[in-house]
């Protein structure tokens, strides 16, 4: 759980790096713009989460799944992300299954993915 309030915000440095990579070289980003983009990204996480959990509830399920997230994108009218996101999910699944077949102990592997490093 979140112990400090900062834990509920995405790190500004990382958000800024993503922004820089999406813009042409040499574009400066003001401090206020960085803060605004980082805040927007953090709120977006909650927005998507809430849209996805609504779908889970509507289906009378308990567990949030990948397809729920994809469906949520349509509900909040971000359909344009569904294509690239589906593609990314396929790559992700392949990477996960490649790792599983490589390492045999499936159960432990699955747990390992769940345990994400704290930075």
């Amino acid at each position: 759980m979140a112990e400090k309030l900062e834990d509920l915000n995405l790190p500004m440095s990382v958000v800024t790096r993503i922004v820089k990579e999406s813009l042409p070289d040499g574009v400066a980003i003001s401090k206020e713009a960085r803060t605004g983009l980082a805040k927007a990204a953090s709120v977006f996480v909650l927005y998507v989460t809430s849209a996805a959990t609504n779908i889970v509830k509507n289906h009378k399920r308990k567990t949030l799944t990948g397809p729920d997230v994809l469906e949520a994108m349509k509900d909040i009218e971000f359909d344009r992300f569904v294509g690239p996101l589906t593609e990314a999910l396929e790559n992700y699944k392949q990477a996960v299954s490649a790792r599983k077949s490589g390492a045999g102990k499936k159960k432990e592997e699955a747990e390992e993915i769940e345990t994400i490093e704290e930075d």
């Binding site: 989460t49 999910l89 992700y92 769940e114």
Partner: peptide, 8 residues
Amino acid sequence: GPEPLYLV
């Protein structure tokens, strides 16, 4: 779970 976390 790992999959919804990755997607979000």
